[in-house]
Design a binder for these strands. Structure first.
Length: 429
RNA sequence: GGAGAGAUGGCUGAGUGGUCGAAAGCGGCUGCCUGCUAAGCAGUUGUAGUCCGAUUAAGGGCUACCCCGGGUUCGAAUCCCGGUCUCUCCGCCA
């Protein structure tokens, strides 16, 4: 959520930001008009309330009974007037709030402006896509041949976009999760968090999934629980409605959770293999910090996520995502993409997004009401929030199965994972 | 699932229709005292919005907030209705 004061004081700046994000700049004028009307109505009501309160108080003292009766009628009329004004205001406030909930964040100046992928900027890369002396197989073939990935049975028991890992496949994923957690905890100084996977609706408003992306969320109507679409939701909301002490910041959290997404928007896309499922695992990095440090925190967060790719020796690149492709609510977003040489089957390889590292500045903090006190006694300010995957499991699995495959169909286990897999070095059928 | 209790300021805890934004204590802050610390004494101490003030001061006025949302009333922390959450006991259960 943007500060309403930005609309009042810097409308042109907000319009320019909306323009870049493909949002109707006319909304700015609409917001300003609503805001002004609301303020006027509020002032009018408050003036009347002041009178009503004073008169009511006087009534408690003066005891002349018949005068009471006449005054009562007058005050009742005044009360009705106030109710009318308040009702009008409530209606406009709702309209205003509905707009503020969905309006995008203002993009950082560094974010390239553009519609699609071609406007993204590769800021750095690591490793070279491997050259194969044989035709690399896509991961679903590699996995099925080794008996570690069972897509057919996933579909049987749960439907499309579900799969089963077995044996070394399940072990490999578990090893990755533990390895990533250990790396971020011991090397990068994050605190491990194990949050609930079911949350209240309010949490999804706090981080921005609601109301705009309600379509993508799983929801248990009976108990009114929502399945987390990412650990970002429960972990960022840990400090909802809190005022943190400046000395507590920055907070660096790492959490492993499954993620649940309905993927209605991408119906029919990426249905092959395990690239996009309704349920997937993820290790997520979340930071809360002061405004002064959030830019630097994004850089380290991104590097921390990249460190996983480096350790696994997977070729990757870091992309500064353009206005048209980035999330609406962050100010700036880096994607980390690993190369999967056979992920598109006959068509060859592709860069797979394994992490989006974003700085939301105070946008989520304002929604979730997460503040901090810059100094003892000072007024609370909103914190800045950041997050990024470190990393998403299925796509890392894809990259490993495809990059580490051998001509005989076996898959070499990346050396950093071997201690987590009883020193196994290769997965064979 | 059954039965009951409760939700008040940073904390503990009074308050059952008017002068209650809210007693008291604790904590915090300021001053005095003290070689320092503690103790003691005095004062002070919620948040947000808005208006006045010199456009971002001191200061002052007003409005809202005693879990949330409605209602009754001239007037609600207090009465009524709905909801949420917490706790206790019983049952069931990984």
């Amino acid at each position: 959520m943007l500060d309403i004061r930005l609309f009042r004081e810097h409308p042109e700046m907000v319009k320019a930001g909306f323009q870049k994000m493909g949002t109707d700049p006319g909304l700015v004028d609409r917001v300003r008009h609503l805001d002004e009307r609301i303020r006027t109505l509020k002032l009018e009501a408050e003036t009347r309330k002041a009178t009503l309160n004073a008169e009511s108080k006087a009534m408690g003292r003066s005891l002349s009974p018949e005068e009471r009766e006449t005054r009562r009628a007058a005050l009742r009329a005044l009360g009705d007037e106030i109710s009318t004004l308040d009702a009008q205001r409530a209606e406009l406030e709702k309209e205003l709030q509905d707009i503020l909930w969905i309006v995008p964040n203002l993009p950082d100046e560094r974010v390239p402006v553009g519609q699609g992928e071609e406007s993204n900027v590769v800021v750095r890369s690591f490793g070279e896509p491997r050259t194969f002396e044989f035709a690399p197989r896509p991961h679903w073939e590699v996995g099925e041949r080794l008996g570690i990935l069972d897509i057919e049975r996933g579909i049987k028991i749960s439907g499309s976009r579900f799969y089963v890992l077995r044996g070394a496949g399940a072990a490999l994923q578990r090893a990755l999760i533990t390895f990533m957690l250990d790396l971020h905890i011991t090397q990068h100084g994050y605190t491990e968090v194990y949050p609930p996977f079911l949350v209240k609706e309010q949490c999804l408003w706090g981080t921005g999934q609601l109301p705009k992306f309600a379509d993508n969320q799983y929801h248990d109507a009976e108990e009114d629980y929502w399945l987390v679409p990412t650990a970002e939701v429960p972990v960022t909301n840990l400090h909802r409605d809190e005022i943190l002490d400046a000395t507590q910041l920055p907070l660096h959290y790492v959490a492993y959770t499954p993620c649940f997404r309905r993927e209605k928007m991408s119906a029919g896309r990426d249905v092959r293999g395990i690239k996009r499922g309704h349920q997937f695992d993820k290790v997520e990095l979340v930071k809360l910090c002061t405004p002064e440090t959030s830019d630097a925190e994004l850089e380290t967060l991104t590097h921390n996520a990249e460190a996983v790719c480096r350790a696994l020796e997977l070729p990757y690149r870091v992309v500064l995502v353009c206005t048209g492709e980035k999330g609406d609510f962050n100010a700036i977003q880096y994607d980390i993409e690993v190369y999967a040489p056979a992920s598109k089957g006959e068509e060859g390889g592709e860069w797979l997004e394994v992490s989006s590292c974003s700085n939301f500045r105070d946008f989520q903090a304002r929604r979730a009401n997460i503040r901090y006190r810059p100094a003892p006694g000072a007024k609370p300010e909103f914190v800045h929030t950041l997050n990024g995957s470190g990393l998403a499991l299925p796509r890392v699995m894809i990259a490993i199965l495809e990059n580490y495959q051998n001509p005989d169909g076996s898959v070499t286990i990346p050396s950093v994972l071997r201690p987590y897999m009883h020193n196994q070095t290769v997965i064979t059928a």
